[in-house]
Design a protein around this nucleic acid. Structure first.
Length: 367
DNA sequence: AAGACGTTCAACCGCAAATGC
DNA sequence: GGCATTTGCGGTTGAACGTCT
């Protein structure tokens, strides 16, 4: 495709794979594992280079791949992780089970990036384009914190990715001469990916930090507002419960009602989501780093970049309840609002979440 | 109906890291 | 430790398909 071939050997087929080739590759890997990719094509009777075979397998034929539309939670996860890690698709993919890095990369380039850009958000910095110059004082601190956390999170993700790779390698190199029968649609040849449970990743991560901040009070909260926490979620993302007042954590694997979620995001924004509002729910530990990050003034520092923009939006919407935790007007979402507005709100909320997730001064990860 | 234009995504490439000898 | 080979990653391409004019 427009470049010199990666394999010098002539006669090797390129371009789209035929069903027959897929079948050959699948049959071979089912029987022998992939072993050496370079040697595989000859052994499997394929006129392809090993690289092409590996790519076909990892991005398309592997049984533990989920195809189809990305859920809203997956989108949120991608955006949050992209804000932290940049174009490190393989690291992002470790947080999205059954999605390949290539698929995530494509989805980002064809959908998410454009949607962010359309909203005036720089898809690289994840900040409003007009906001780039206004981050001189308070925001720079947050940016530094975010950067610190990004490095920290990045190192952890790399370690996780390594574990996943090693696990897969071990299993894939073992010939499956067991009773495993395999077709592209059903039987997994490889074991399920290493779950990113809190137990597996006991250290802080940005998303977990968020979860922790929200989740901890759940055990002894007397509010009874419907906290729901999925501790097994590998990459939980923040969402809000039905009445929008108490934060909830929902797991990635949980099917979501997108319409409802839209409304939740909308209300999150409408309620002027801020740590002022959230403070009563935040654990001591979490509020500690939040406080540090804001130079001692937890509420002011942390909410600065959140509420400013949210208030701006609220004013535009005529919702002035940003400082009111019991914003009742947010419960009923006006149906007359356009879908575009909902999308905007949803994306705005994501941006604010991304901007705010950086516990500073955390110790370096030990793996 | 047909050509132009835009979008999507599988597959390619080169590079860097990891691994083996 | 040094070199050769293999593997993984991220950027890019272009065919296929959809939409617009």
């Amino acid at each position: 495709m427009g470049r010199s071939p990666c394999c010098d050997k002539v006669g090797l087929k390129k371009g789209p794979w035929t069903p027959e080739e897929d079948q050959k590759l699948l049959a071979y890997i089912e029987k022998h594992g992939h072993g050496s990719w370079r040697a595989l094509p000859n052994k499997a009777g394929l006129q392809r280079c090993g690289k092409s075979c590996r790519l076909r397998w990892t991005n398309y034929l592997r049984p533990d791949i989920k195809r189809g539309k990305f859920s809203m939670q997956e989108e949120q996860t991608i955006i949050q992780l992209h804000a932290l890690l940049g174009n490190r698709w393989s690291a992002i993919a470790t947080h999205l089970p059954k999605r390949t890095d290539n698929e995530i990369k494509n989805y980002w380039n064809t959908h998410l990036k454009k949607r962010l850009a359309k909203m005036g958000i720089d898809p690289i910095t994840h900040k409003p384009k007009s906001d780039n110059l206004s981050s001189a004082d308070g925001h720079s601190k947050c940016a530094a914190n975010l950067n610190h956390m990004a490095q920290w999170e990045s190192a952890r993700l790399e370690a996780e990715a390594r574990l996943v790779r090693e696990s897969k390698l071990r299993s894939s190199t073992i010939p499956s001469n067991t009773t495993t029968t395999f077709t592209p649609k059903n039987q997994p040849l490889l074991p399920p990916p290493v779950p990113m449970t809190p137990a597996a990743s006991p250290c802080l991560d940005v998303l977990s930090a968020w979860q922790g901040a929200w989740a901890k009070p759940a055990a002894n909260n007397s509010l009874g507002r419907g906290y729901t926490i999925d501790l097994e979620s590998p990459t939980s993302t923040l969402s809000f419960s039905d009445n929008m007042m108490a934060p909830t954590i929902s797991g990635m694997g949980i099917a979501e009602d997108s319409t409802r979620e839209d409304q939740q995001w909308k209300c999150l924004r409408k309620s002027g989501f801020s740590m002022l509002t959230a403070a009563p729910f935040v654990s001591t530990e979490a509020s500690s780093w939040l406080s540090e990050s804001s130079g001692g003034d937890f509420a002011a520092g942390f909410t600065g970049m959140l509420s400013d923009k949210a208030n701006e939006q609220n004013s535009a919407d005529g919702c002035n309840d940003s400082d009111n935790a019991e914003c009742g007007s947010c419960v009923d979402v006006e149906e007359s609002e356009g879908e575009e507005d909902e999308n905007k709100n949803y994306w705005s909320s994501i941006l604010y979440l991304v901007n705010s997730s950086s516990p500073p001064n955390s110790p370096p990860p030990v793996f």
